[in-house]
Design a protein around this nucleic acid. Structure first.
Length: 420
DNA sequence: TCTGGGGTCCTAGGACCC
DNA sequence: TCTGGGGTCCTAGGACCC
């Protein structure tokens, strides 16, 4: 009864944009790099064929790519944003109801085009190409999730010529049968792993699984995905985009940071950028958060503190926001130094065997004794009363231990790398 | 030396209240 | 030594997306 949904997706969008403005890139492997030229975030088909993956770091592959004749470009978001708007404008001619889902994707409501959806999509595709120069693929189906799957198929099979529509039950099962779990919209590595562990190894199996069980075992989100794979629409088109709930500005430092001043300066820059976005969207902020992140590529658990400051009056004023952010940053640094001192003691604790255990039921055990001593010392470092040894009953002790263990990672303070 | 920068939603668990 | 039930709100963390 209700109409079908089309997902229109620009092919290798950033790479296609670059080609538009530099025709010498046509037919060549093209890689677009992230900010600071860190890693690959877009690849032309030729680059994909060379085995270049999303996220491949530039500095590790520079020589190989040069050898392979890969053309590398720094990203230019102003350009991509502009081309995106042009594409979306053309799409508006093909349906009154368009949900702009991301910079390079849109869902179209095809109600009213019953019977000729596919022809409509082909016309759309050639017009977008003719008017903007951007190649797109179109997937058509009863639900958003299936439209995504259809698009995936259209993109990878030349015979589709860029458009694929799931017209029947047989087609639905056939398409799902060709996909992996992680090809499905909403299923990443972790969910796929957990699904497989419980015997659901393919999209078809997920579609056939009991929806209630999926919700209980996972979440309503995955339940919706499972239902949509069956052909039961659970996600409406969102035609107006609601105002942002958060605005974030962040960058990685090129090298490890340990001092307050450079971090503070970076925070000032990010506040300026974020408040600019805020004003452009005609919004005000009620809270300001600052977070820091140490190098997540290191094997040990990393430090990821954050602090939030509430504003008495919501604001988009850069001075107000800057003050709040600097206060938040100071809070983090203060804690960081405190934890750093405590870190030594925490290592003592773990050396004493206080890593896991039910030794609390034996107050005289060496571990319990060690913990008691450590708590005394923590009080000396953190200030009197921080840890209450006097009233340390079983339950309290457990809580304390959990708290200590959860702060272990804070000993990595000296490897601060990323700031927002 | 060198590994993106944005977002969203959901859930578990703790704090607090009656 | 034992120890309610139910509700709300908040936060941290996990998972996903492009």
């Amino acid at each position: 009864m209700s109409g079908l949904i089309a997902l229109v997706d620009c092919n290798n969008f950033y790479a296609s944009c670059e080609r538009l403005f530099d025709p010498t890139l046509r037919g060549k492997p093209v890689v677009v790099l992230s900010n600071n030229d860190g890693c690959a975030i877009a690849r032309s088909n030729e680059a994909k064929a060379l085995g270049i993956k999303m996220g491949d770091p530039w500095h590790l592959n520079r020589a190989a790519w040069r050898r392979q004749g890969v053309r590398v470009r720094s990203s230019n978001y102003t350009l991509y944003g502009d081309l995106s708007r042009r594409v979306m404008t053309v799409l508006g001619d093909f349906s009154p109801n368009v949900e702009v889902y991301s910079i390079d994707e849109a869902f179209l409501d095809l109600t009213g085009f019953e019977g000729w959806e596919e022809a409509h999509a082909r016309q759309l595709r050639s017009r977008v190409l003719a008017w903007t120069g951007i190649p797109v693929s179109v997937g058509i189906a009863k639900t958003k999730t299936l439209a995504k799957a259809a698009n995936h198929h259209a993109k990878r099979n030349a015979a589709c010529a860029g458009v694929f529509m799931i017209k029947s039950e047989e087609a639905r099962l056939e398409i799902l049968g060709r996909l992996q779990l992680t090809d499905i919209w909403g299923i990443g590595d972790r969910l796929a792993y957990r699904l497989k562990a419980m015997g659901i190894e393919s999209p078809v199996a997920l579609a056939e699984a009991d929806a209630e069980t999926i919700r209980k075992t996972f979440s309503v989100v995955l339940e919706r995905t499972a239902r949509e794979l069956k052909g039961e629409p659970c996600q409406e088109l969102e035609l107006v985009n609601p105002p942002s709930k958060s605005i974030c500005a962040s960058r990685s430092f090129g090298a490890e940071q340990t001092a307050f001043v450079p971090v503070s300066e970076a925070v000032a820059t990010f506040v300026a950028r974020a408040s600019e976005k805020l004003r452009r969207q005609q919004l005000v902020a009620g809270t300001v958060s600052v977070f820091l992140e140490t190098n997540t590529f290191k094997a040990v658990k990393q430090y990821h503190p954050w602090a939030t400051v509430s504003l008495p009056v919501a604001s988009a004023d850069i001075r107000t926001l800057t003050t709040a952010a600097q206060n938040a940053l100071r809070m983090i640094f203060k804690q960081g130094y405190r934890y750093k001192k405590a870190g030594v003691l925490l290592d003592d604790l773990s050396a004493a065997g206080c890593v896991q255990g039910d030794f609390w039921s034996e107050p005289d055990s060496p571990q319990s004794q060690a913990l008691m001593r450590a708590m005394d010392r923590l009080n000396k470092v953190w200030g009197r009363g921080t840890v209450k040894t006097a009233s340390c009953g079983t339950r309290e002790a457990w809580r304390l231990r959990a708290d200590l263990m959860s702060r272990r990672y804070t000993t990595r303070w000296d490897e601060l790398l990323r700031v927002t």
